[in-house]
Amino acid sequence: MIIVFSLFLLTMMVVVALAVVETRNLFAAAMLTGIFSFLMAANFFVLDAADVALTEAAVGAGVATVFFLGAIALSSEHEHSASRKFGLALLAVASTAVVILLGTMEFPILGDGSAPVHQHVAPWYLEKTPELIHVPNVVTAVLASFRGYDTLGEVFVVLTAAIGVLSLLGFPRNNSEENAVNDGLSHQKILHIVGKLLIPLIILFGLYVQFHGDFGPGGGFQAGTIIAAALILYALLSGGDRARRQMPPRLLFGMACLGAFIYAGVGGTTLLLGGNLLDYSVLSHDPVHGQHLGIMLIEFGVGLAVASVMLTIYHAFAGHEHR
């Protein structure tokens, strides 16, 4: 049964991807990309990857679409030139296709429990996590502790993106006048009231995802994106100027830096306490408790950094004035 569902989702994804490539309207392409991401997220869920599904839904379908729309609003909605370099593209694509398809013939079948991936390293994580780290969600344990060094890099990737967007577009300027031009959707009562009603609930959900990440799907990254989505909704409803007055972009960027610094700082602290980098066991007398403390701290850093970076980037697009 599940395989039929999976086949349907995968085929739909190919169809949507083709539609994305074919449409000349960039607005439509961005919305279709959102649908593509939703299908992808559903597919991840079918494949038992709940954490990834949550992230893909929040990032691919949510934040990425918002960024695309923000950039399209500032640039252009239509593709003007026709495609070109067909020959080169077809050659590259066709040769790669043949090579990959030949290669897949010797891939392990989907769901094969005896595939090599399931024999080495992964069973160790599944077996040792309850004992060494004592959190139910193995994905969180691997992400935050066993492979915490990668996640450290991940947070800095996000921070680099914020630095890059700000250094390209500049900090959004604030319209200081009280009668700001842009008051968002506040004149549309229904949208305004329903939106305002939802924002606290979304933030609540975000906090649940943040602090429940040890026990169920979730963690700092997903939570940061969800909370950022709630605050972006607020900015849409009340107008960017008002949102930026209440939460200045410079403060947001400072919070992003702080979040990344917390993560790296936990690493620095473990060094100073005599452990290896990111060895949380030295943070407390009891190694397992130290792991808990370390994971909580770095997840907080990740959540803070991601939420602030997403908001910073949103405001950089939304509050950008043409020069």
Binding site: L47, D48, A49, D51, V52, T55, E56, V59, G60, V63, A64, F67, F68, G70, A71, L74, S75, V117, H118, V121, A122, Y125, L126, V138, V139, A141, V142, L143, R147, D150, T151, G153, E154, V157, V158, T160, A161, G164, V165, L168, L169, F221, V306, I313, A316, F317, H320
Partner: peptide
């Protein structure tokens, strides 16, 4: 249980993807 490792790797890769996209879009605007 399903294998946790690819999930962890892809969580990181999704983040990398959105960061690249954001930076690319800022370049498009400029």
């Amino acid at each position: 249980y399903s294998n946790p490792v690819p999930q962890v790797l892809i969580l990181t890769a999704i983040v990398v993807g959105i960061s690249t996209t954001a930076l690319g879009l800022a370049l498009v605007v400029r």
